[in-house]
Nucleic acid binder design. Structure first.
Lengths: 186, 186
DNA sequence: GCACAAAAGCAAATAATTTGCGTTAGTTGG
DNA sequence: CCAACTAACGCAAATTATTTGCTTTTGTGC
């Protein structure tokens, strides 16, 4: 599937992809997840259903592709102050986004795809953002958890709770971060 | 949907459910996930497709239901020795099961269902097993992490890595447990 | 045993998916 | 700039899956 990766910008393939993605987003915003069909998406995007079937295979793959695209961060984590403050701010925003109705749906769409491309993208995006935060901390000489530590003990619990419908308290995220940071003090 | 919950044992409804579940398991063992269809499942289970559509709605829901049923533990965590040893043994077995091809697929099936019933079951099963271990520790007076601690810092990282295709090293699980237990020593 | 309700079967109608083939748009080499 | 060339699209027919109305069966309670 070479289409998915890097269709030449401006080409017909890219235009179709953009139209279909937009169509999916519009439709998902309007109607219930279970009523979405490929013919419907095709109609709104002004393409033939067979185009979508040929490019994406089935609805799950298409939704996963769209979700992965939406999960791509638009900017680096904002600079607030210390590395820890930047981390808290970014993670909280990330958790809120993922815990929202659409966020959860995107997560599930990404995970239910057979093909692993979207899941990988999703993970890479997140890791890149964390890497930026880690690099900043290193630059300013602050002690800071590494990528593994953050993934295992901050990101994982949050995502797990979202996926498995566990309640996430008001300052759950802050507490997770506090625990991870505390390891340097003991 | 009252069927899903507690069909009277021995009734027709229960027989159909068992036949369909078995059919799904057989088919999943044989062929690729993307080639599985409801008419196929129905045929092998000797029921009409409409029966399946009426009871489960669609393939995703059916697969989620079957997966949740398969994730139900058959027995309590085995007694090895100390509470910690019991925990290590059970978690390792749990992680292996989930990380296997079928385990991963079951997880994804459970998560991709729209209805939250299966996801809840899956979580409850796991929590019950952990609760048994916690109760044992309490009985024998050993210091032991609570449910939240185990979910957040042992189960979550494992499941996250499985879902997002991160490598899980040989003694990754043991290290997670070591970290969690260590908090009592500092 | 009889009446009732819940769930299954059957079959027709609808909708989605696949596929073969012709067409178009973008790319490349002269 | 023009002529092949190719990848991706459109179209439509064939196939397959899904929905639905109605009938029949099966298990339950009286």
């Amino acid at each position: 599937m070479s289409h998915r990766e890097n269709p030449r910008p401006g080409g017909r393939s890219a235009r179709v992809q953009a139209a279909v993605h937009q169509s999916v987003r519009d439709i998902l915003a309007t109607m219930d997840r279970t009523d979405v069909t490929i013919p419907l998406i095709a109609q709104r995007a002004n393409v033939t259903p067979s185009t979508i079937y040929r490019r994406w295979g089935d609805l799950q793959e298409l939704l996963a592709d769209v979700a992965a695209a939406r999960l791509r961060p638009e900017s680096e984590p904002p600079r607030i102050g210390s590395a820890r403050e930047d981390l808290e701010s970014w993670i909280e925003q990330y958790a809120d986004e993922m815990a929202s109705g659409v966020g959860r749906q995107m997560l599930r769409d990404v995970l239910s795809s057979t093909d692993g491309t979207s899941v990988e993208k999703c993970r890479c995006y997140m890791q890149q953002q964390l890497a930026v935060l880690i690099a900043r901390a290193e630059k300013s000489g602050e002690r800071f958890p590494d990528l593994e530590e953050l993934m295992d003990h901050v990101i994982s619990p949050i995502i797990y709770r979202i996926l498995f419908d566990c309640p996430i308290g008001e300052d759950y995220v802050r507490e997770l971060i506090a625990k991870v940071m505390q390891k340097f003090k003991g």
